[in-house]
Amino acid sequence: MNVDEKVGRNIRKYRMAYNMTLKELAVRLHKSVSTVSKYEKGDISTFLELSKIFKVSPLAIIGDEIAEEEEECTYAETIEKLYMYSYDGIGKVIVKSVIEQQAVEGKNNKYKVHLFNDVSEVKEPGECGGLYTGEYEKEGFIGTYMLHNQALKSEHIMISCVNNLVNPGQQLALVSGLSNYTMLPVTFKAVISEKEIVNKEKLMNLLTFNKEDLKLMKQMNYLTIQNIR
């Protein structure tokens, strides 16, 4: 895939994540639908204006190939891609999400973050159930995401993470926010991984609350996760 194709694919990804039609984006850009369609096919002439609309760094649209040509940049050149998994107890399904984050220059412990929640295909994260943006900050083996739903401005989520002692490439996490079903505060488990996890049995073991979790919650009167898996 050449640079132009990658730019076009990124434009389409963010447009879909914002649940925005070609016509709606065309209105925002004061362009015709046919012109915007051409952008998604690789015309990068207006990527700066697009980055403002999507609230992302221009580098997130351009991609790594051109990043090294930028002399002044707010974010690091590399976009780190992570995979997040949670379990929907009502639908009885494992929910897959994709996290894209860039380190803030001069602050290697702080990142600009986009969370594509509930994706059907990790290779096409724009086709998601919702887009959350915000920041991630880490200190040692712990980290915190503070994210905002771009479709529902009143919804915010916090993801508290700790490195998995058994699998260093994974983080065990608790996600706190509003339930889409009840619109009441909820907390649930999640796993954030550097690589895709295809073993469903392993995921279910990590994502569901067991008897020991419930026993600990009853003793402590708060919900926590045990870092031994």
Rank of each mutant, 00 (worst) to 15 (best):
A60L: 11
S176D: 14
I99E: 00
V104S: 05
E70G: 07
V95N: 11
Y136F: 14
C73R: 13
Y83E: 03
L59F: 04
P58D: 10
E137C: 01
I62A: 15
M84W: 00
E70P: 02
E121Y: 09
E135Q: 12
K107E: 13
S176K: 09
E71Q: 14
L172R: 02
Y83D: 01
L147H: 10
I157E: 13
T78P: 06
E155P: 01
S179W: 10
Y87D: 10
N108I: 01
I90V: 15
E70L: 15
L59C: 11
Y132Q: 00
L165T: 07
F141G: 08
D64Q: 13
K123D: 15
K92I: 10
A173Y: 08
N117S: 07
E100I: 00
L147Y: 06
G169W: 05
L152G: 00
G143N: 01
S120C: 06
L131T: 00
V104L: 14
L131R: 02
C161P: 01
D64K: 09
I94E: 04
G91K: 14
L59V: 15
V104G: 02
L165Y: 07
H114M: 08
V98F: 00
L174N: 03
D64I: 15
I99F: 08
N167F: 13
T74D: 13
L115Y: 01
E121Q: 09
G134E: 04
A151R: 05
T144I: 14
L147S: 11
P168D: 00
Y85K: 05
Q171N: 09
H156K: 15
A76N: 14
K81M: 03
V113F: 03
T133G: 07
I157Y: 13
K153D: 08
Y85M: 00
V95R: 13
G177Q: 07
E77C: 09
S176I: 09
S176E: 15
L131A: 02
N164A: 01
K110E: 10
S160Q: 13
E100T: 07
S120R: 10
V104N: 02
E68P: 01
E80Y: 05
S179L: 06
V95Q: 12
A173V: 08
K138T: 11
H156M: 12
S154V: 12
E135W: 10
G140C: 01
F141H: 08
E69F: 15
Q102N: 09
A76Y: 10
Y87S: 04
L174S: 04
T144Y: 08
T78Y: 14
A103T: 14
P125F: 06
L147F: 08
E100A: 01
V93L: 06
I79Y: 06
V166W: 05
K92E: 13
I157M: 15
E65T: 08
L174V: 08
T78L: 11
E100D: 05
S179G: 02
E139Q: 10
N108V: 03
Y87P: 03
Y75P: 07
K123C: 03
A173N: 05
A67P: 05
N117Y: 14
N164R: 03
F116I: 03
I66L: 14
V113D: 08
E69A: 09
P58G: 05
K81F: 00
Q150I: 11
Q102I: 00
I90F: 14
G169E: 12
N109R: 02
K138R: 13
E77Y: 06
L147N: 12
L131H: 04
E127I: 04
I61N: 04
G63A: 05
A67T: 10
N167V: 13
Q101F: 04
